[in-house]
Amino acid sequence: MTATAANAGERRRYWFSIAALAVVLPAAILVHTGDTIREWLRDMRDPIAVESGALQRYAGADWRLTGLARLPGSLPKTAVVLAEFEATVDDPAQLAENRCQVALTDDRGRRWQPAFLPESAVHKAKPAAADKPHCGLFEGTSTGDTIMMAESFVVPEDAKSLALSVSLSGALPAYLLFR
């Protein structure tokens, strides 16, 4: 083998290694962050739009929004949004093992979490709704039961096109979006 031939072989190996980096580096990053990416993908959500009053099958129950009322807030320029919804149980086992997350969204992508205790306006205007439980008590139900739930949110007065999203951990990435 001559010196030039050895050089040519070395050069080829050098460029091959450089080119391989372009493939190997992203692959290494992918492998090392695999779990994070999987979690991130699971967080990518997939809404099921439901019209007000319509029934929608989700996570072992039939869901329906029964009311989305706007009440005066106790702070200036705010409103209280009271969302009442119900689930008719179809598959108690499937429903029971879920954690429930509820949020209110608007057309600007803002997201409100539910208040832990209903505001005084709720007690005044809809006392029955104030006694309804939060979303998330699905243990010990049987087929045909209807679970009535209510959540209240404090939003600014100018919040428009509000939608209620309900997601159950076992049914993600799909979630319900009531308009």
Partner: peptide, 9 residues
Amino acid sequence: GTERLEPGI
């Protein structure tokens, strides 16, 4: 920590 902040308020 005594109060949660809501978007826009």
